[in-house]
Design a protein around this nucleic acid. Structure first.
Length: 702
DNA sequence: GAGCACTGC
């Protein structure tokens, strides 16, 4: 412990914290900042007047760091040192140092906006710029003014970002603490490779034949490329002349790999054997692989991006940032000096790569965040000018307001409604919280809770990889319920209800290729949601399943009705002669139902006239994932609302976004000024009108 | 008829 670099800086750090309310700490990997900063401040008496809270972006980090600190102080975890993550609060009245995920701290500030119990708040790993950390930084800026005398804030960041954070916090001091990494030699490509898979492959073979022992970590973009590289590398390595070099093991590592295959990277290789690990950026921060001496960096990452004008997400392969490139390189220097081979030129590194990763707040839908901020009811703060380190575009904020208005979370003046206030208390995206509240009115809260919980776990649940399933046993997915023709929400409900009937037997999940961990997570989420809903409804809710089929059908009807209200911002209408849909709540887009959907066409081969969708995502084409058919009669009030939408009024009337003080807004949306005068939907008014006419015609037919 | 990087309340 004594050799941790940060301890040499203790006097300097304490002195700076005493003289300043906010301090930025640039702590390189291995500096010990996560475990030592809190202990230093504890030693110097900062826990006498309150708790030291340290946030982490990941659950595992919060738990493991808390455990380490408890050990170092020789106390039981949960007493003087504790942690709080979702579903698990291991703190007590004695707790003085508390590690928590930034999401949990945000929840806490919902019930206590001044965060009065804390004397110090440390935002760790702020350079990762998660949506939650960015929101917290904005809140901290406000909080330090209110609690000038009794709150200290420390923010840890990366070299390239430190001055920016300091500027944001009124030019607060920046301290740099060196890390304890071994030197890593950086080797660039001479030219931009045509195929990065091929150049990764070639570099891997070069290392294997020429370099001394040590494992190789290769950063790729996704499962597909990883599998390609693994099979090519195997082929090459095994064709090498026997005895010409050491043995090799080649391992894939990515998020959709079952946990039992993921842990293979943690077992030591046999002697005289080199491991190659082809990984996504899961190995950049979340998992640390020991024994890595060589890193091959493709220079790319797969990144999700939201488009506020279409409501559509896309998953793109993009260049990494310099911060990411350095993080990847650092993975080679953990145990001894290493080498990092970059599959791009040094010119590209200097001139093409962004300094820092585009923060999540500029890549996501902000409906949830805006609702959260509105629910805090900060008297002195205009949400649209909320002081973010990197402000989102005005277009993105308007989109959030529009969505919130369509689901009744804010009124036409942009003020939060009672419904909105309740929604903010639920740890769900706004559409699902709105669905729960509506379902409570229709007596189908039990089903809605299940659907919301299932969708919270999403992708990891169902058998994704058909190839493997087909090989083993045939009719796995056919064994699962089919949503009774109404779509995926109903199917998810039916699956959970079946599992409930089996008394949550994990073997039942395995038999049906459902991810056990995912299903257990759903059970936890559902329980948590039940508790919150019960508190809100002030009475006992009927939170368990309907017993017989007849009641189920009535339940499905009401559930779909509740979904239609909750997803008013995610509604689509089928086009006349085929099964393509047009989105109605955004600038109209032509989209398809994702082929994995269980929604069934009717006798004429047609899908439902109107559906709600959980997500729009462009992969090979624009798709709606998780859809549910809704009745035509339920749609009319929503279309009326869309038609009468006035974004200017929603954003507070007097607030003219284009003249806002937020530099980033203007810079990022140069064309905004023209479209400003009236509702952003005016251009599509005729299309909405046409939809209303088609709607009336369809209703007439029924 | 497609396939999805990673987190978190």
């Amino acid at each position: 412990m004594a050799q941790l670099p940060i301890l040499q800086f203790e006097e300097k750090i304490i002195e700076t914290v005493e003289q300043n309310q906010v301090v930025v700490i640039i702590g390189e990997t291995g500096s010990g900042k996560s475990t030592q900063l809190s202990q230093m401040l504890h030693r110097r008496g900062y826990t006498k007047s309150g708790i030291i809270g340290v946030t982490q972006p990941r659950r595992v980090a919060a738990v493991s760091v808390a455990r380490r600190v408890a050990e170092e102080l020789g106390v039981h975890l949960g007493e003087d040192v504790g942690y709080a993550i979702r579903f698990e609060d291991r703190t007590s009245e004695r707790t003085r140092i508390k590690y928590l995920t930034d999401g949990v701290l945000l929840r806490e500030s919902l019930s206590d906006p001044e965060l009065g119990q804390y004397s110090v708040i440390i935002l760790d790993e702020a350079h990762e710029r998660s949506l939650n950390t960015d929101t917290l930084m904005g809140l901290m800026k406000r909080l330090i003014r209110m609690r000038r005398s009794n709150l200290k804030v420390l923010i840890t960041s990366a070299t390239l970002d430190g001055n920016k954070v300091s500027k944001f916090f009124f030019d607060c001091p920046v301290l740099t603490v060196p890390g304890k990494l071994y030197p890593v030699e950086i080797l660039y490509s001479n030219e931009r490779p045509k195929s990065y898979i091929e150049s990764c492959l070639k570099t891997a073979i070069d290392i294997h034949t020429k370099e001394p022992e040590g494992d190789v970590l290769i950063f790729m973009t996704g499962q597909d490329d990883i599998e390609k590289l693994v099979s090519k590398l195997e082929e090459k390595v095994y064709s090498l002349e026997e005895g010409s070099c050491m043995d090799a093991i080649i391992l894939p590592l990515h998020g959709s790999l079952p946990p039992e295959l993921q842990v293979r990277v943690f077992s030591r290789p046999p002697p005289n054997c080199r491991r190659f690990i082809a990984a996504t950026n899961i190995a950049e921060t979340s998992l640390t692989v020991d024994g890595v001496v060589y890193v091959i960096d493709s220079g790319y990452v797969k990144q999700r991006q939201y488009n506020p004008s279409t409501g559509m997400y896309s998953l793109n392969v993009v260049q990494i940032s310099k911060v990411q490139a350095n993080q990847r390189a650092g993975r080679a220097g953990r145990t001894r000096p290493g080498k990092c081979y970059r599959m791009y030129t040094s010119m590209d590194y200097q001139e093409e790569l962004l300094d820092v990763t585009v923060p999540e707040i500029q890549r996501s839908s902000l409906a949830g965040s805006v609702l959260y901020l509105k629910s805090l009811d900060l008297p002195d703060i205009d949400i649209l000018r909320f002081d973010f380190l990197d402000p989102p575009t005005s277009e993105s904020l308007e989109d959030a307001l529009k969505q919130l208005y369509l689901i009744d979370a804010i009124d036409e003046n942009g003020s939060i409604t009672r419904i909105g206030q309740t929604m903010a208390e639920l740890p769900l995206e706004p559409s699902l919280s709105r669905t729960l509240i509506e379902a409570n009115e229709y007596g189908c809260i039990s089903q809605a809770l299940t659907v919301a919980a299932m969708l919270s776990a999403e992708t990891t649940l169902l058998p994704g990889n058909r190839k493997n399933v087909d090989k083993k046993r045939k009719h796995r997915s056919e064994d699962l319920p089919d949503g009774s023709g109404w779509g995926d929400h109903i199917q998810l409900l039916q699956i959970f209800e079946l599992w409930d009937q089996k008394n949550y037997d994990v073997n039942w999940c395995k038999d049906h290729d459902l991810q056990v961990r995912g299903m257990l997570f759903v059970k936890d989420v559902r329980k948590q949601l039940c508790q919150i809903m019960q508190k809100i409804a002030k009475g006992s809710l009927e939170v368990w399943s309907f017993k017989n089929q007849k009641e189920s059908q009535a339940g499905y009807w009401n559930l779909r009705k509740a979904l239609c209200v909750g997803y008013a911002n995610q509604l689509a209408e089928r086009m006349i002669h085929h099964n393509g849909y047009r989105t109605l709540s955004f600038k109209p887009q032509v989209v398809q139902v994702h082929p994995s959907s269980v929604m069934k066409p009717d006798e004429e081969g047609k899908f439902a006239d109107y559906i709600v969708y959980h997500e729009l995502i462009t992969t090979s084409r624009p798709y709606m994932r998780h859809v549910c058919g809704v009745q035509v009669d339920w749609v009319m009030p929503i279309l009326n609302k869309v038609k009468n939408l006035n974004v200017n009024k929603l954003s507070g009337g007097s607030t003219d976004l284009t003249r806002g003080t937020i530099e980033g807004n203007v810079k990022n949306s140069p064309k905004k000024e023209d479209a400003r005068t009236t509702s952003t939907l005016d251009g599509h008014d005729n299309k909405i009108q046409a939809a209303r006419e088609r709607f009336l015609a369809r209703r007439g037919k029924k």
